[in-house]
Nucleic acid binder design. Structure first.
Length: 195
DNA sequence: TATTGGATCGCC
DNA sequence: GCGATCCAATAG
């Protein structure tokens, strides 16, 4: 069995679209003491630069968006609609605001515990959405700004993904001409994609 | 200090 | 299709 290790910071330092595409098939892991909760990434979206109106960073550097302007390989976690968290990985060089939103996972380790956290039994409903996967893996505001290269939350090599599809991002109708950018990547045919 | 609205979800 | 629920970002 190969020793698991976090992807290096250079992985995150690349072009954001490249990172988003490359993340499909990788394994997102959260270790809570002796418990391992993980899932293969099957869907991710890129939020790129200061002009992308769909991105929080288009409003500039604020308290909330600070992690997006920071160095690559760190987590950007925020509360949405007052009740769910969304998990992103910060990309590109420090000072350039960009990140990839992890939208859905194929559950791997800790499925019993994920069911308890999610209050649902169907495996397909555990992590098929950005808010759901944070709930399943126990990702909260506490992980905002966490270093994915040296903490209990990380991404490692997973499995070879199937065919990768590309399309427009979800839930960004307000983003004017940026709403139609095909910056969402997903594993075609996966049963674990978000709605 | 007050108002607004959202990178969602689950139920009607 | 719609309400829940709260905080950051703005406006005043």
């Amino acid at each position: 069995m190969r020793k698991s290790s976090p992807l290096p910071r250079e992985f995150y330092a690349q072009d954001t679209l490249e990172v988003a595409r490359s993340l499909i098939g990788k394994l997102l892991v959260h270790r809570i003491e002796n418990l391992i909760l993980s899932g293969f990434i099957v869907e991710a979206e890129a939020y790129v630069g200061p002009d992308d109106r769909a991105s929080h960073a288009s409003r500039g550097l604020t308290r909330r968006t600070a992690p997006m302007f920071g160095p690559p390989g760190f987590a950007y976690v925020y509360l949405i609609y007052g009740m769910y968290y969304c998990f992103n990985v910060v990309t590109e060089k420090e000072g350039y605001p960009a990140a990839v939103l992890i939208r859905s996972l194929e559950p791997h380790q800790g499925i019993i515990e994920m069911r308890e956290k999610r209050k649902v039994t169907s495996i397909k409903e555990l992590t098929n959405g950005p808010g759901k996967l944070c709930q399943a893996l126990g990702i909260t505001k506490d992980m905002n700004g966490r270093d994915l290269c040296s903490s209990d939350l990380w991404i490692e090599e997973g499995r070879e993904p199937g065919k990768i599809g590309q399309g427009i991002r979800i839930g960004v109708h307000y983003a004017r001409e940026w709403k139609d950018k095909p910056w969402r990547f997903f594993e075609t045919g996966s049963e674990y994609l978000s709605r």
